[in-house]
């Protein structure tokens, strides 16, 4: 197992290197420059600015300088956000994004798994239809619509939760968490239902019933775990997606998160911030995929074994 994880980490580093390279050159291919008032600048002014930020060097040189910087833990300085170092920029804002993202993914997947399982057990009844209906709603309505509705009814009308801002700790995070959890909830529920219907039709479930298990015992002891195996694979990428923030929802609730920064950095050609955030996003994705694969082994004994054999 240790050998397997070591090998996987080596691959992760390679993956991140390739992503960094690809992003760097793609970014350089984008038209425009980081300067907002470019039209008014003279050629001299521009040359001075370029020299200051190292943008006058050939692209490949900039690339190597950037790589060396990364190896020293230096992700550069943002062009846009008050010349703060990118690492500080990200670390000071990633907290709220990760918190609501993690909360949303936990809420969404747990409820989604339950909803999907119930729909599968009560297949083709009104319960199933209702669950499907909600899943389609959750999937097709954008999260900012939920955000606004929640804000209006629960915060503005009923005054149960704060309307916005990030100043009441956990209470501030509840509404954005619910808004963000709808999409993963719906996706997980649909996925879980399909898997569970399959599993419930399998021979070992019939054998479990033949042992004298009640229908609920059968689900708890045999069906749930087996249905979860494929569902876990989709949870990983969904989690990363949410944890790096959702710009619109963060804006609606005035959360000082990272989602909104990512979009701004792209529209303004803020190269170091784009690179920093892309690398962060990729890093989280590969880590989550590794975690999912390890989790997979814990849940599915067949994979645990083949994983070991693969590493030997």
């Amino acid at each position: 197992m240790r050998k397997y994880i070591f090998k996987r980490i080596m691959y992760m580093i390679l993956t991140l290197f390739i992503i960094a390279t690809a992003t760097f050159f793609l970014m350089k291919l984008m038209p425009g420059s980081p300067y907002a008032n470019q039209a008014k600048m003279t050629a001299d002014q521009r040359a001075i600015m370029d020299a200051q930020y190292g943008l006058n060097k050939p692209v490949y040189q900039q690339y190597f300088i950037y790589l060396i910087g990364i190896l020293h833990g230096d992700f550069g300085t943002s062009f846009q956000f008050n010349n703060q170092p990118v690492s500080f920029l990200i670390s000071s804002r990633i907290g709220p994004s990760m918190q609501i993202g993690a909360q949303a993914i936990i809420l969404g997947t747990v409820l989604g798994i339950l909803l999907g399982a119930i729909a599968a057990i009560r297949k083709n009844t009104w319960v199933d239809t209702l669950a499907t209906f909600f899943a389609i709603l959750g999937r097709s309505i954008p999260n900012f619509v939920f955000a606004v509705l929640l804000q209006f009814y629960l915060a503005f009308k009923l005054k149960i939760f704060p309307i916005a801002l990030w100043d009441e700790g956990f209470r501030s995070s509840i509404l954005p968490t619910i808004a963000l959890s709808m999409a993963p909830l719906a996706t997980t529920a649909r996925f879980m239902r399909t898997e569970m219907v399959d599993v419930l039709n399998s021979d070992y479930i019939e054998l479990a019933r033949a042992k004298g298990n009640t229908p609920w015992q059968t689900v708890a002891k045999h069906a749930l775990r087996n249905s979860l195996i494929p569902v876990i694979t989709i949870i990983g990428p969904m989690a990363v997606d949410l944890m790096v923030g959702s710009m619109v929802v963060e804006n609606i609730f005035s959360i000082p998160g990272i989602g909104d920064q990512f979009v701004k950095s792209i529209t303004t050609n803020d190269y170091p911030t784009i690179m920093g955030l892309t690398l962060l996003y990729s890093f989280m994705l590969v880590v989550v995929i590794l975690i999912v694969d390890i989790l997979y082994g814990f849940i599915d004994p067949r994979i645990r074994l083949s994983g070991n054999e693969g590493s030997n």
């Binding site: 399998s202 021979d203 070992y204 019939e206 054998l207 479990a208 019933r209 033949a210 042992k211 004298g212 298990n213 009640t214 002891k221 045999h222 775990r225 087996n226 195996i229 849940i299 599915d300 004994p301 067949r302």
Partner: peptide
């Protein structure tokens, strides 16, 4: 009937490759 199943009357299934829970 759940009390009878697997206790007084039990059953052997056809396909051994799929009759056992793969994760237990």
């Amino acid at each position: 009937i759940e009390k009878i199943r697997g206790n007084d009357i039990s059953m052997i299934f056809q396909d051994p490759m799929t009759s056992l829970d793969p994760t237990m």
